[in-house]
Design a protein around this nucleic acid. Sequence first.
DNA 1: ACAATATATATCAAGTACCATATATTTTCG
DNA 2: CGAAAATATATGGTACTTGATATATATTGT
Lengths: 117, 117
Amino acid sequence: MDIDPEILFRALGDTTRQRCLVLLQQEGELCVCELTHALDAAQPKISRHLAHLREAGLVSDRREGLWIHYRLNPALPEWVRTVLRATAEGVAGHPPFASDKAALSRMPDRPFSRDWA
Amino acid sequence: MDIDPEILFRALGDTTRQRCLVLLQQEGELCVCELTHALDAAQPKISRHLAHLREAGLVSDRREGLWIHYRLNPALPEWVRTVLRATAEGVAGHPPFASDKAALSRMPDRPFSRDWA
DNA sequence: ACAATATATATCAAGTACCATATATTTTCG
DNA sequence: CGAAAATATATGGTACTTGATATATATTGT
């Protein structure tokens, strides 16, 4: 799989998309309503940014009933994974990324249990 | 030193700036005319993109006579260095990055000798 | 002080990106 | 089939980005 670096970094160049990617990296798989809640953002906004990430090849999606689960695209080249990992580690402690994770874990009635160490 | 990830990735989201950063990473330090030659681009275009990188905190500059040498900002946080290194390694073999390096080494009358293994 | 060279900045037009709101689509359940 | 829930897309407005061209600034040597 090949990723155009211009498309990659333009996709990374928006805070909303960064926050989604960092959460996906930390949580593995999330549906739109979880991201919407974690970021406290309007649903169409999240949906459109996820579409952007999907078109850039960064995430893949999987439907399960009403829900659509997003995850990092498993076919990403290693250097892109390194970029995403370094970024997630670099920003994890700073706002708004730290509170996103907290908000997600506080979400009531999460549609799926995602128990993985 | 702190780098805002949105500013970082927007700076990386342009092919011209990527090419400059990859060359700077490979060569250590380059003046504007070298970058202009390597990318075969107009001088004001290179100058403006370098200004963008400087304002984003990614590069620093040093004047020596008529020339201004640019280099990666030595104060970059480690995660940003990792991002830049992974990117440079990931794209080095692909166009236009590969030919940029070749064009630079073919440049006649390069203003400085930069001998470092 | 003047000319030449390297680099920087200004301007304008064209394209692009983002947000908020409204609306459409898809799936499940009764 | 109709309603409800989750997600996706469309629209319009505003703001940012980019490139090309022209011009300005800074430094050196004569």
